[in-house]
Amino acid sequence: MEQLINVILLAMLAIVAIATAKLKDLFATIILFGIYSLLTAAIFVSLDAVDVAFTEAAVGAGISTILILSTIALTARTEKPSTHSVFLPLLVVIVTGVTLVYGTLDMPGFADPDAPVQQHVAPRYLNDSINEVGMPNVVTSVLASYRSYDTMGEVVVIFTAGISVMLLLSSVKHREDELGNLKDLKHHPILLYVSQIMIPLILLFALYVQFHGDFGPGGGFQAGVIFAAAFILYGMINGIDNTRKIFQNHILRWLAVTGVILYIGVGVVTLFLGGEFLNYNVLTEDNLAGQHYGIFLVELGVGIAVAATMLSLFLTFSEVRRSQ
């Protein structure tokens, strides 16, 4: 049964990918791409990767789609018919693909419990993390403790993207209120009321995801995205300018910086306490308690940095005026 779902979902994914390649209407392509991401998330669930599915749904189907949509709102909706010859790229792709299939025929079989990936490094995470880190969600243990340094890099990546977008878009002309594309939708009573009910719930859910990542799927990254999503929804319904009243540029900038520095700062504190960088054991007498404090703080850093950066990305894109 599990196999069957897997096979069918993957086949659907392949079909959606082809359709994405063939469509000329960019708006439809993007919506299809959102579906593609959701399908991917569903496949991740069936492959036991719940944390990844959560993130893919929030980021791939959510944030990426919104960013690309805001971009076509500023550029062009349809693609020009390509005058490129299709033949050469197709040939390159088919030859590479066939070579790859040939090159991977001896891969360890799918779902094989004796495959090399399941040996060596991974068993320690599964067997000992509960005693060494003390969290039921092994993904969180690996993410925020064993490979915490990678996660710090990840926060810096998102921060870098935020800075880069600000560098790029700070000079473009900003939308003037009446002329903008993104008018508020306050005159739609249903949207308005539904969003008023939803937004507090979404925020509550974000907090739950933030602090419950030790036990279930979730953590700082997902929480940050959901938190930003609540305000993105607010912005779409009540207008960007109203959102900006709370989240001015410099506030978001401070928040993003705070998040990154909180993460790196935990590492610096552990250095001063005589441990290696990000070795949470030295935070308190008791190792497990130290791990808990450390993970709590770095996840908080991730959440703050991600929420601030995502929100600022959305607002920055929405404020650009359409050039003629």
Partner: peptide
Amino acid sequence: MGGWAAPW
């Protein structure tokens, strides 16, 4: 990093 010996 983090006091975890490689390769973990």
